[in-house]
Nucleic acid binder design. Structure first.
Ligand code: ZN
Ligand code: ZN
Ligand code: ZN
Ligand code: ZN
Lengths: 146, 146
DNA sequence: TTGGTAAATGAAAATATTTTTCAATTAGCA
DNA sequence: TGCTAATTGAAAAATATTTTCATTTACCAA
Protein backbone atom coordinates (compact mmCIF):
# COMPACT_ATOMS: atom_id res chain seq x y z
CA UNK A 1 0.00 0.00 0.00
CA UNK A 2 1.56 3.24 -1.10
CA UNK A 3 1.27 6.60 0.49
CA UNK A 4 -1.79 8.68 -0.17
CA UNK A 5 -1.93 12.25 0.93
CA UNK A 6 -3.56 12.43 4.31
CA UNK A 7 -5.39 15.55 3.20
CA UNK A 8 -7.22 13.67 0.53
CA UNK A 9 -8.37 10.98 2.90
CA UNK A 10 -9.49 13.62 5.37
CA UNK A 11 -11.46 15.28 2.59
CA UNK A 12 -13.25 12.04 1.81
CA UNK A 13 -14.12 11.46 5.43
CA UNK A 14 -15.33 15.00 5.93
CA UNK A 15 -17.82 14.45 3.14
CA UNK A 16 -18.99 11.19 4.63
CA UNK A 17 -17.45 8.97 1.97
CA UNK A 18 -16.14 5.65 3.12
CA UNK A 19 -12.52 4.81 2.51
CA UNK A 20 -12.62 1.49 0.73
CA UNK A 21 -9.60 -0.41 -0.58
CA UNK A 22 -10.95 0.14 -4.08
CA UNK A 23 -10.89 3.87 -3.61
CA UNK A 24 -7.40 3.71 -2.19
CA UNK A 25 -6.33 1.76 -5.23
CA UNK A 26 -7.72 4.33 -7.65
CA UNK A 27 -6.10 7.15 -5.72
CA UNK A 28 -2.76 5.38 -5.64
CA UNK A 29 -2.83 4.72 -9.36
CA UNK A 30 -3.64 8.30 -10.22
CA UNK A 31 -1.23 9.79 -7.72
CA UNK A 32 1.57 7.58 -8.96
CA UNK A 33 1.22 8.71 -12.55
CA UNK A 34 2.39 11.96 -13.99
CA UNK A 35 0.33 11.47 -17.08
CA UNK A 36 -3.35 11.62 -17.83
CA UNK A 37 -4.99 8.24 -17.45
CA UNK A 38 -8.19 6.97 -19.00
CA UNK A 39 -10.65 4.97 -16.90
CA UNK A 40 -9.53 1.87 -18.80
CA UNK A 41 -5.87 2.51 -17.96
CA UNK A 42 -6.73 3.11 -14.33
CA UNK A 43 -8.71 -0.11 -14.35
CA UNK A 44 -5.75 -2.07 -15.66
CA UNK A 45 -3.27 -0.62 -13.17
CA UNK A 46 -5.85 -0.84 -10.43
CA UNK A 47 -5.88 -4.62 -10.79
CA UNK A 48 -2.38 -4.70 -9.34
CA UNK A 49 -3.40 -2.63 -6.35
CA UNK A 50 -6.70 -4.38 -5.75
CA UNK A 51 -7.26 -7.51 -7.84
CA UNK A 52 -10.87 -7.91 -8.91
CA UNK A 53 -11.76 -4.23 -8.80
CA UNK A 54 -14.56 -3.51 -11.22
CA UNK A 55 -14.55 -0.98 -14.04
CA UNK A 56 -17.82 0.41 -12.73
CA UNK A 57 -16.14 1.23 -9.46
CA UNK A 58 -13.41 3.04 -11.33
CA UNK A 59 -15.98 5.22 -13.05
CA UNK A 60 -17.82 5.89 -9.85
CA UNK A 61 -14.70 6.71 -7.91
CA UNK A 62 -13.40 9.00 -10.62
CA UNK A 63 -16.62 10.92 -10.67
CA UNK A 64 -16.52 11.30 -6.91
CA UNK A 65 -12.89 12.39 -6.82
CA UNK A 66 -13.49 14.91 -9.57
CA UNK A 67 -16.44 16.31 -7.70
CA UNK A 68 -14.25 16.66 -4.62
CA UNK A 69 -11.68 18.48 -6.71
CA UNK A 70 -9.02 15.90 -5.94
CA UNK A 71 -8.49 14.98 -9.55
CA UNK A 72 -9.53 16.61 -12.77
CA UNK A 73 -10.91 15.55 -16.04
CA UNK A 74 -8.72 16.37 -18.98
CA UNK A 75 -9.41 16.86 -22.59
CA UNK A 76 -7.71 14.33 -24.76
CA UNK A 77 -7.86 13.47 -28.35
CA UNK A 78 -9.01 9.89 -28.61
CA UNK A 79 -12.45 8.72 -27.72
CA UNK A 80 -12.14 8.50 -23.97
CA UNK A 81 -11.86 11.06 -21.23
CA UNK A 82 -8.92 11.01 -18.88
CA UNK A 83 -7.98 12.13 -15.43
CA UNK A 84 -4.99 13.32 -13.48
CA UNK A 85 -4.36 14.28 -9.93
CA UNK A 86 -4.95 17.94 -9.30
CA UNK A 87 -1.60 19.46 -8.52
CA UNK A 88 -1.29 23.01 -7.31
CA UNK A 89 -1.04 24.76 -10.60
CA UNK A 90 -3.89 24.21 -13.02
CA UNK A 91 -1.42 24.52 -15.87
CA UNK A 92 -1.31 22.03 -18.71
CA UNK A 93 1.34 22.74 -21.30
CA UNK A 94 2.25 20.78 -24.39
CA UNK A 95 4.32 21.20 -27.48
CA UNK A 96 3.07 18.76 -30.07
CA UNK A 97 4.60 17.61 -33.34
CA UNK A 98 2.08 17.22 -36.16
CA UNK A 99 4.45 14.85 -37.91
CA UNK A 100 5.22 12.22 -35.31
CA UNK A 101 2.89 13.20 -32.44
CA UNK A 102 5.77 13.66 -30.04
CA UNK A 103 4.63 15.61 -27.00
CA UNK A 104 7.06 17.79 -25.08
CA UNK A 105 6.08 19.44 -21.83
CA UNK A 106 7.22 22.87 -20.77
CA UNK A 107 6.74 24.70 -17.51
CA UNK A 108 6.61 28.46 -17.84
CA UNK A 109 3.75 30.29 -19.49
CA UNK A 110 3.11 33.67 -17.92
CA UNK A 111 -0.60 33.74 -18.66
CA UNK A 112 -1.57 35.22 -15.32
CA UNK A 113 -2.19 38.69 -16.67
CA UNK A 114 -4.32 37.50 -19.56
CA UNK A 115 -6.22 35.25 -17.21
CA UNK A 116 -7.08 38.14 -14.93
CA UNK A 117 -8.11 40.32 -17.83
CA UNK A 118 -10.42 37.64 -19.22
CA UNK A 119 -11.84 36.99 -15.81
CA UNK A 120 -12.72 40.65 -15.34
CA UNK A 121 -14.16 40.94 -18.80
CA UNK A 122 -16.32 37.83 -18.83
CA UNK A 123 -17.03 37.14 -15.18
CA UNK A 124 -15.59 33.65 -15.50
CA UNK A 125 -13.93 32.17 -12.46
CA UNK A 126 -10.93 30.63 -14.18
CA UNK A 127 -9.42 27.54 -12.62
CA UNK A 128 -6.85 26.40 -15.09
CA UNK A 129 -5.76 26.35 -18.67
CA UNK A 130 -4.52 24.20 -21.46
CA UNK A 131 -1.84 25.64 -23.72
CA UNK A 132 -0.74 23.61 -26.71
CA UNK A 133 1.68 24.70 -29.37
CA UNK A 134 1.39 22.79 -32.61
CA UNK A 135 4.22 22.46 -35.09
CA UNK A 136 6.95 20.20 -36.38
CA UNK A 137 9.88 18.85 -34.43
CA UNK A 138 13.40 19.04 -35.86
CA UNK A 139 13.34 15.46 -37.08
CA UNK A 140 10.06 15.89 -38.94
CA UNK A 141 11.18 19.17 -40.49
CA UNK A 142 14.12 17.29 -42.00
CA UNK A 143 11.94 14.49 -43.29
CA UNK A 144 9.54 16.97 -44.89
CA UNK A 145 12.29 18.85 -46.71
CA UNK A 146 14.09 15.70 -47.84
CA UNK B 1 -28.01 26.40 -49.93
CA UNK B 2 -26.18 28.88 -47.76
CA UNK B 3 -22.90 30.54 -48.42
CA UNK B 4 -19.75 28.63 -47.65
CA UNK B 5 -16.44 30.39 -47.64
CA UNK B 6 -14.79 30.01 -51.00
CA UNK B 7 -11.46 29.52 -49.26
CA UNK B 8 -12.67 26.41 -47.54
CA UNK B 9 -13.91 24.88 -50.75
CA UNK B 10 -10.64 25.71 -52.44
CA UNK B 11 -8.81 24.02 -49.59
CA UNK B 12 -10.83 20.85 -50.04
CA UNK B 13 -10.17 20.80 -53.75
CA UNK B 14 -6.48 21.42 -53.32
CA UNK B 15 -6.27 18.33 -51.18
CA UNK B 16 -8.15 16.28 -53.72
CA UNK B 17 -11.32 15.94 -51.66
CA UNK B 18 -14.57 15.91 -53.57
CA UNK B 19 -17.18 18.49 -52.79
CA UNK B 20 -20.31 16.49 -52.10
CA UNK B 21 -23.67 17.90 -51.02
CA UNK B 22 -23.25 16.08 -47.73
CA UNK B 23 -19.98 17.86 -47.06
CA UNK B 24 -21.56 21.17 -47.97
CA UNK B 25 -24.34 20.46 -45.53
CA UNK B 26 -21.95 19.73 -42.67
CA UNK B 27 -19.98 22.87 -43.45
CA UNK B 28 -23.11 24.98 -43.57
CA UNK B 29 -24.33 23.67 -40.26
CA UNK B 30 -21.04 24.30 -38.51
CA UNK B 31 -20.47 27.68 -40.12
CA UNK B 32 -23.97 28.81 -39.19
CA UNK B 33 -23.51 28.03 -35.53
CA UNK B 34 -21.57 30.09 -33.10
CA UNK B 35 -21.52 27.30 -30.62
CA UNK B 36 -19.69 24.05 -30.60
CA UNK B 37 -21.79 21.18 -31.87
CA UNK B 38 -21.63 17.46 -31.20
CA UNK B 39 -21.74 15.03 -34.12
CA UNK B 40 -25.28 14.14 -33.09
CA UNK B 41 -26.37 17.79 -33.17
CA UNK B 42 -24.76 18.27 -36.55
CA UNK B 43 -26.53 15.17 -37.78
CA UNK B 44 -29.89 16.51 -36.69
CA UNK B 45 -29.40 19.92 -38.27
CA UNK B 46 -27.80 18.35 -41.31
CA UNK B 47 -31.07 16.58 -42.08
CA UNK B 48 -32.55 19.94 -42.97
CA UNK B 49 -29.72 20.74 -45.35
CA UNK B 50 -29.48 17.31 -46.88
CA UNK B 51 -32.25 14.90 -45.92
CA UNK B 52 -31.04 11.36 -45.54
CA UNK B 53 -27.46 12.22 -44.67
CA UNK B 54 -25.96 9.46 -42.55
CA UNK B 55 -24.37 9.84 -39.15
CA UNK B 56 -21.32 7.99 -40.44
CA UNK B 57 -20.82 10.66 -43.04
CA UNK B 58 -20.98 13.30 -40.33
CA UNK B 59 -18.20 11.57 -38.42
CA UNK B 60 -16.09 11.13 -41.51
CA UNK B 61 -16.55 14.69 -42.66
CA UNK B 62 -15.77 16.10 -39.24
CA UNK B 63 -12.56 14.16 -39.09
CA UNK B 64 -11.57 15.39 -42.51
CA UNK B 65 -12.42 19.02 -41.78
CA UNK B 66 -10.51 18.89 -38.51
CA UNK B 67 -7.51 17.43 -40.29
CA UNK B 68 -7.68 20.27 -42.81
CA UNK B 69 -7.80 22.73 -39.95
CA UNK B 70 -11.14 24.10 -41.08
CA UNK B 71 -12.88 23.18 -37.86
CA UNK B 72 -11.58 22.10 -34.54
CA UNK B 73 -12.38 19.67 -31.84
CA UNK B 74 -13.26 21.17 -28.49
CA UNK B 75 -12.89 19.78 -25.03
CA UNK B 76 -16.13 19.56 -23.29
CA UNK B 77 -17.36 17.73 -20.32
CA UNK B 78 -20.15 15.38 -21.35
CA UNK B 79 -19.64 12.12 -23.10
CA UNK B 80 -19.32 13.34 -26.66
CA UNK B 81 -16.76 15.45 -28.46
CA UNK B 82 -17.77 18.60 -30.26
CA UNK B 83 -16.62 20.84 -33.05
CA UNK B 84 -16.68 24.45 -34.14
CA UNK B 85 -15.48 26.36 -37.16
CA UNK B 86 -11.94 27.65 -36.97
CA UNK B 87 -11.98 31.39 -37.38
CA UNK B 88 -8.51 32.84 -36.71
CA UNK B 89 -5.58 31.16 -38.39
CA UNK B 90 -2.70 30.11 -36.12
CA UNK B 91 -4.51 31.12 -32.99
CA UNK B 92 -7.18 29.19 -31.33
CA UNK B 93 -8.60 30.49 -28.09
CA UNK B 94 -11.43 29.31 -25.90
CA UNK B 95 -12.84 30.08 -22.53
CA UNK B 96 -14.86 27.09 -21.43
CA UNK B 97 -17.35 26.73 -18.61
CA UNK B 98 -17.12 23.43 -16.78
CA UNK B 99 -20.68 23.85 -15.59
CA UNK B 100 -22.68 24.42 -18.75
CA UNK B 101 -20.08 23.88 -21.51
CA UNK B 102 -20.49 27.40 -22.85
CA UNK B 103 -17.55 28.28 -25.07
CA UNK B 104 -16.49 31.90 -25.44
CA UNK B 105 -13.87 32.94 -27.95
CA UNK B 106 -11.34 35.65 -27.33
CA UNK B 107 -8.83 37.20 -29.66
CA UNK B 108 -5.71 38.52 -27.97
CA UNK B 109 -3.12 36.24 -26.42
CA UNK B 110 0.37 37.67 -26.68
CA UNK B 111 2.10 34.31 -26.85
CA UNK B 112 4.58 35.40 -29.52
CA UNK B 113 7.51 35.75 -27.18
CA UNK B 114 6.94 32.40 -25.49
CA UNK B 115 6.51 30.80 -28.89
CA UNK B 116 9.88 32.11 -30.07
CA UNK B 117 11.59 31.03 -26.91
CA UNK B 118 10.20 27.51 -27.16
CA UNK B 119 11.09 27.36 -30.80
CA UNK B 120 14.72 28.28 -30.11
CA UNK B 121 14.96 25.88 -27.22
CA UNK B 122 13.41 22.83 -28.85
CA UNK B 123 13.95 23.34 -32.55
CA UNK B 124 10.24 23.02 -33.20
CA UNK B 125 8.78 24.96 -36.10
CA UNK B 126 5.62 26.19 -34.40
CA UNK B 127 2.61 26.79 -36.59
CA UNK B 128 -0.16 27.55 -34.17
CA UNK B 129 -1.50 27.06 -30.73
CA UNK B 130 -4.52 26.15 -28.73
CA UNK B 131 -5.17 28.08 -25.56
CA UNK B 132 -8.10 27.09 -23.42
CA UNK B 133 -9.02 28.54 -20.09
CA UNK B 134 -11.25 26.37 -17.98
CA UNK B 135 -13.51 27.72 -15.29
CA UNK B 136 -17.04 28.61 -14.39
CA UNK B 137 -19.19 31.27 -16.04
CA UNK B 138 -21.13 33.75 -13.93
CA UNK B 139 -24.37 31.86 -14.21
CA UNK B 140 -22.83 28.58 -13.07
CA UNK B 141 -21.01 30.25 -10.18
CA UNK B 142 -24.38 31.44 -8.93
CA UNK B 143 -25.96 28.03 -9.27
CA UNK B 144 -23.08 26.42 -7.36
CA UNK B 145 -23.30 28.84 -4.46
CA UNK B 146 -27.09 28.71 -4.24
C1' DT C 1 -21.22 15.66 -73.44
C1' DT C 2 -20.00 11.08 -72.01
C1' DG C 3 -18.18 7.29 -69.84
C1' DG C 4 -14.48 5.56 -66.52
C1' DT C 5 -12.73 5.47 -61.98
C1' DA C 6 -11.49 6.37 -57.55
C1' DA C 7 -13.65 8.54 -53.79
C1' DA C 8 -17.60 8.94 -51.01
C1' DT C 9 -21.93 7.40 -49.14
C1' DG C 10 -25.30 4.84 -46.10
C1' DA C 11 -26.89 0.63 -43.80
C1' DA C 12 -25.66 -2.58 -40.77
C1' DA C 13 -22.60 -4.73 -37.80
C1' DA C 14 -18.84 -4.40 -34.74
C1' DT C 15 -16.39 -2.00 -31.05
C1' DA C 16 -15.80 1.03 -27.43
C1' DT C 17 -17.38 3.78 -23.75
C1' DT C 18 -20.42 5.05 -20.04
C1' DT C 19 -24.54 4.46 -17.12
C1' DT C 20 -28.14 1.88 -14.76
C1' DT C 21 -29.95 -1.83 -12.03
C1' DC C 22 -29.84 -4.82 -8.31
C1' DA C 23 -28.44 -8.38 -5.08
C1' DA C 24 -24.51 -9.20 -2.14
C1' DT C 25 -20.86 -7.29 0.64
C1' DT C 26 -18.53 -4.18 3.79
C1' DA C 27 -16.77 0.20 6.34
C1' DG C 28 -17.68 2.72 10.10
C1' DC C 29 -20.13 3.40 14.05
C1' DA C 30 -22.89 2.57 18.51
C1' DT D 1 -19.88 -7.35 18.24
C1' DG D 2 -23.76 -6.44 15.35
C1' DC D 3 -26.42 -2.89 12.68
C1' DT D 4 -27.14 -0.10 8.68
C1' DA D 5 -26.46 2.70 4.99
C1' DA D 6 -22.93 3.07 1.66
C1' DT D 7 -20.40 0.60 -1.65
C1' DT D 8 -19.30 -3.00 -4.72
C1' DG D 9 -19.34 -6.03 -9.01
C1' DA D 10 -21.88 -8.51 -12.59
C1' DA D 11 -24.83 -8.00 -16.08
C1' DA D 12 -27.63 -5.44 -18.95
C1' DA D 13 -28.74 -1.16 -21.08
C1' DA D 14 -27.68 3.01 -23.16
C1' DT D 15 -24.44 5.89 -25.84
C1' DA D 16 -20.86 6.89 -28.83
C1' DT D 17 -17.68 5.73 -32.42
C1' DT D 18 -15.52 2.86 -36.04
C1' DT D 19 -15.42 -0.72 -39.55
C1' DT D 20 -17.14 -3.19 -43.45
C1' DC D 21 -18.96 -3.46 -47.82
C1' DA D 22 -22.08 -2.95 -51.69
C1' DT D 23 -23.86 1.00 -54.13
C1' DT D 24 -23.67 5.63 -55.77
C1' DT D 25 -21.49 9.82 -57.41
C1' DA D 26 -18.15 13.81 -58.30
C1' DC D 27 -14.75 14.82 -61.23
C1' DC D 28 -11.57 14.17 -64.89
C1' DA D 29 -10.13 12.88 -69.44
C1' DA D 30 -11.44 11.88 -73.83
ZN1 ZN E 1 0.33 27.83 -17.87
ZN1 ZN F 1 7.98 15.05 -35.20
ZN1 ZN G 1 -3.13 33.04 -29.56
ZN1 ZN H 1 -21.60 27.94 -17.22
Amino acid sequence: MKLIEKEIIAKLRRRGYKLTPQRRAVLNVIAASHEHLTPAAIYERGQQEHPGIGLVTIYRTLEMLAELGVICKVNTEGSSRSYLIRRASGHHHHLICSGCNTVVDFTTCDLGELEQKLSRKTGFKIEGHLLEFIGYCQKCQKVASA
